[in-house]
Write a protein that binds this DNA or RNA. Structure first.
Length: 265
DNA sequence: ATGGTAGGTCTCCTA
């Protein structure tokens, strides 16, 4: 009997047109079966996918938008496009889903960053973020997904060791209790498992470092904003999670790095 | 306590 292992990666690319070469480099060097991208910052017509196809990644579902957002699932395995949900009802390209031939479903999300002030009465963008994640919770509860992997830039670092300083970030958008409580309510509603934290339970773990640091590597003020979750029926199949920190040191990098996990069956 | 960088676009938005 043969077991098929599927390796899934997620990466906020921060402009797919500017960094098409970095996407190709990652595909060549790491050979994931599936790469989920966020922040394409492009309309669909201007995204070049022929370079990905030449490397064997011939399947792609993509939702684009001018200048902002945008998500894609690039794959060397055939994909069925399952469409996208518009949680805020404004036509923003923040979600797309696809099904593999083995029945696994990939849900790729780009959650709103939420602005600077963690108070929805003065900062509507923070309200949008809470509404979006609340809608993810309602969807998780209502649809009760199975055989599903949820990935993406969720723009929330839920655990103490998902940020460089828990104490100093409690009032900083991405790590406030209102956000981390809400994200935990999504996990409860869908009975999701945080795959990467299950694989790597101990120690600091980051997937994003600000562009604004003088030396991102030396100061190491990171946050784990990018996630891979799985439904409970996939518990026991996942392994080999890793976060590719070194990609932050590539030439003209994204501020996020790729996160990987593998699934058997 | 503050300001720092990056990308896309149409002169400033978002992250």
């Amino acid at each position: 009997m043969r077991t098929l292992t599927v390796t899934i990666a997620t990466w906020n690319i921060n402009s797919v047109r500017l960094r098409e070469n970095l996407v190709c480099r990652l595909l060549e060097e790491e050979q994931p079966d599936i790469l989920c991208l966020q922040e394409l910052k492009s309309v669909e017509e201007l995204v070049r996918t022929d370079g990905f196809a030449r490397l064997g990644y011939r399947h792609c579902v993509l939702r684009g938008q001018k200048a902002y957002n945008g998500v894609a699932i690039v794959s060397r395995l055939p994909l069925e496009d399952l469409g996208s949900r518009d949680f805020l009802g404004r036509g923003e390209a923040r979600h797309v889903a696809a099904r593999l031939e083995n029945g696994m479903v990939i849900e790729n999300f780009y959650v709103p960053a939420g602005g600077d002030e963690p108070d929805r009465t003065v900062n509507p963008k923070f309200g949008d973020k809470l509404d979006f994640v609340g809608a993810m919770r309602d969807w998780s509860h209502r649809d009760a997904p199975t055989r599903t992997v949820l990935v993406g830039d969720l723009n929330i670092a839920p655990l103490e060791h998902d940020v460089w300083s828990h104490r100093q970030l409690l009032k900083v958008v991405s790590h406030t209790p209102i956000e981390t409580d809400l994200l935990n309510s999504v996990i409860e509603a869908g009975n999701w498992t945080d795959v990467v934290r299950s694989d790597i339970p101990e120690g600091k773990l980051y997937s994003w470092w600000s562009y604004r640091a003088r030396d991102w590597n030396a100061s190491d003020r990171g946050r784990r904003l990018d996630h891979i979750w799985a439904t409970s029926d996939l518990v026991g199949t996942f392994h080999s999670s890793r976060i590719l920190r070194e990609v932050r040191g590539w030439d003209r990098p994204s501020d996020h790095v790729p996160v990987f996990a593998s699934f058997d069956g």
